[in-house]
Computed example of a mutant assay.
Amino acid sequence: MKILHITSSIDPKAGGVSQALRSMIRGLSAASVVNDVVSLDDPDSGVNEGDSFTAFLLGPPKTSWRYTKNLIPWLKENIANYDIVLIHGLWQYHSYAAHKVVTALRGKKPRLMVMPHGMLDPYFQKAEGRRLKALRNNVYWKLLEGRVVNDADKLLFTAQTEQDVSALAFTPYKIKSASVVGLGIETPPAWNDLMADAFLQQSGYQLPQNYLLFLGRINEKKGVDLLVDAWLHLKTKYPSFPGLMIAGPGLDSVTGEAVTAKLNGVKDAWLPGMLRGNAKWAAFYGAGAFVLPSHQENFGISVVESMLCHKAVLISNKVNISQEIAEGGGGLVENDDLPGTITLLERWHKLTNAEKSLMNRTACRVANELYSVENATARLMSAIGYGATQQV
């Protein structure tokens, strides 16, 4: 079986879609599926450096729609060579082009599937400051994107919550079929001293002790502003309250600059920027717990990575996998507002060391049970109509 994955970008800095795609491909490749990727990245960008799959970078793209004249001609010439065309993400040129070429084919054609990666969440239509974008999306849905979604042979979701809320944002929403396939997250490397060395090299300072960790894109959607305000409040209330590390790209964004200003000169606060490889794992292993008070989170790859490093997660109820985590005992969940975030951090602080240790161990067990690569691949193979052990 051959799958063509089509996405706007595979740049790791672009967010969770690129990371989710790579994780999915590793699982599928182990099941003897051939995976190729088409993205709209600049072929000279190096974003596919180190990847084991074949990537066709057909950019550079133009405009925020990420248009490139190279995509449709390439698809017309090559798309019939694949059994499945899987669109990752929506609202940009790649989904329009893939739908246009597949639906125009005559005779035998690949099955067209869409993995929205949370991009049908009603949050984006209701969030403050997005009124004009919401109106634009409604028009775009009726003209183009609704056809992509409703004509697809199947939609693939990473969580049941994502599937449920995706039906609430736009009309008409009349999909043919859907499956919840989840995501599989690879077991992280065990702790070693090279991780601390890598952290020092990338951040410029020694790995601290006794801190809460946020690791992800620094923007308003992630609730980073809530986290900083809640932490500053509790740091005043409890002198022994743990420190705060906010790691990730986006310090030069509006939210990032506001966070930097609030934490400038504050003791026990660290902003190392984006961490990669061993430095990222050092941050996970060194943390007391992981925090994500997001207003919308489709899956939360960093959430699961943290759990696999034996770290409890303190997350909002807008993280789509929060219910499973709370029910399993792998973390704490509260509302995605300032009172909820304060309560979230304070609940963790008031746990005994024994209770924290138990939750840390439980987090790893829950992550292995729910989000292993093997289980996610088996669900995906079943959803696309092939047994996980089928050979091609």
Rank of each mutant, 00 (worst) to 15 (best):
W270T: 07
M274V: 09
V291H: 07
V266C: 00
L226R: 04
L338P: 10
D252C: 01
E128N: 14
A20W: 07
L75V: 05
L105V: 07
V102D: 11
N35Q: 13
F124W: 12
N138H: 15
S29D: 10
S306E: 00
P61E: 12
K235F: 13
Q19P: 04
T158C: 11
L226V: 06
K222P: 13
P249V: 02
P189H: 03
M307T: 01
A196C: 09
L156H: 06
D51W: 15
S372V: 04
Q390R: 15
F56V: 04
P116R: 01
N81E: 05
A363G: 15
H233W: 13
A376P: 12
T161P: 10
G184L: 15
G59E: 01
D121N: 15
A287T: 04
T63M: 02
G118P: 05
N48W: 00
R111Q: 10
A134H: 06
N353Q: 14
D225N: 13
S45N: 03
Q209H: 15
L212E: 08
L215Y: 00
T103Y: 09
N320S: 13
T161K: 15
A167D: 14
V333S: 13
H117V: 10
A247Q: 02
S32P: 10
P110G: 10
G146Y: 01
S203P: 06
A80H: 05
A367W: 13
P122E: 04
Y211S: 03
D44P: 10
F199H: 01
K222R: 04
A31C: 15
V17G: 12
P208N: 08
P43M: 06
S23L: 11
H99T: 12
L244G: 07
R26H: 04
P172H: 13
R131K: 15
P73K: 11
K350W: 02
A282V: 00
P249G: 11
F241A: 10
R361L: 15
G184N: 14
A104F: 03
K154W: 08
Y93C: 02
V34C: 03
R111K: 14
G265T: 07
L234M: 10
S9A: 11
G27A: 13
R106L: 15
L380S: 12
A178P: 00
R66M: 07
G107A: 05
I325C: 08
K262F: 08
G182M: 04
Y96T: 12
H88E: 04
Y285S: 08
S8E: 03
D41I: 11
Y371A: 01
L105E: 11
N368S: 04
N137G: 02
K176V: 01
E49M: 07
I321G: 06
R26W: 07
G15A: 06
D51F: 12
